[in-house]
């Protein structure tokens, strides 16, 4: 059962990622990325990370990607054109990435001592997760909240119309 689920959702993941590259229109790419993220959530569930699976859906698929779709809709971003730069990038980029992937893959295939995952494995409960997060890693957690606050302020400052226009408006 685990094997079947893994094959289905790993396939969906790869198909979505490939579709992201091949689609011309950004909104199709965004939706294929949503497919990748939701199938990754299922894979997290298979690995016993319940809370992360839910967070993956809520944060990535439900918030970040909605923001992307929203911006694409707002700017009415059209299809992209092929340019000289993109042809050069294809010519150099593909072989380079293929080499990187081949190196990582050989290391991983040869790797010994890695276990296996099956459905009967234990599940990390939300309680365990929060115990570690709020006891041992409390400081990093608080720091990330400051990061989020700065990001909010930065986003507001950047997306607001420029000062010159605002004063002209007054």
């Amino acid at each position: 059962m685990h094997l079947i689920l893994f094959i289905i959702f790993a396939g969906l993941c790869l198909a979505g990622a490939l579709n992201l590259l091949l689609q011309k229109h950004p909104i199709n790419s965004a939706l294929s990325l949503v497919v990748v993220m939701t199938s990754l959530a299922v894979l997290y569930l298979l690995l016993g990370a319940e809370f992360l699976a839910a967070a993956q859906i809520i944060v990535y698929a439900g918030a970040i990607m909605v923001l992307f779709t929203f911006v694409i809709m707002l700017l009415n971003a059209g299809r992209e054109e092929r340019t000289l730069g993109s042809r050069a990038a294809i010519a150099v980029g593909f072989p380079a990435v293929a080499v990187i992937l081949a190196v990582i893959a050989t290391v991983l295939v040869k790797a010994q001592g890695l276990g296996a995952a099956s459905l009967s494995d234990g599940v990390t409960s939300t309680e365990d997760l929060s115990r570690v997060l709020f006891h041992e890693l409390l400081l990093p957690f608080e720091v990330t909240s400051v990061l989020i606050l700065i990001a909010i302020l930065g986003a507001v400052a950047l997306a607001r119309k420029g000062h010159g226009e605002q004063e002209a408006g007054k």
Partner: peptide, 16 residues
């Protein structure tokens, strides 16, 4: 186990 989060997650995907 994460029923409430499933509810929130599905609601947030409904925006699409």
């Amino acid at each position: 186990n994460i029923g409430l989060l499933v509810v929130l997650g599905v609601t947030s995907v409904g925006v699409y």
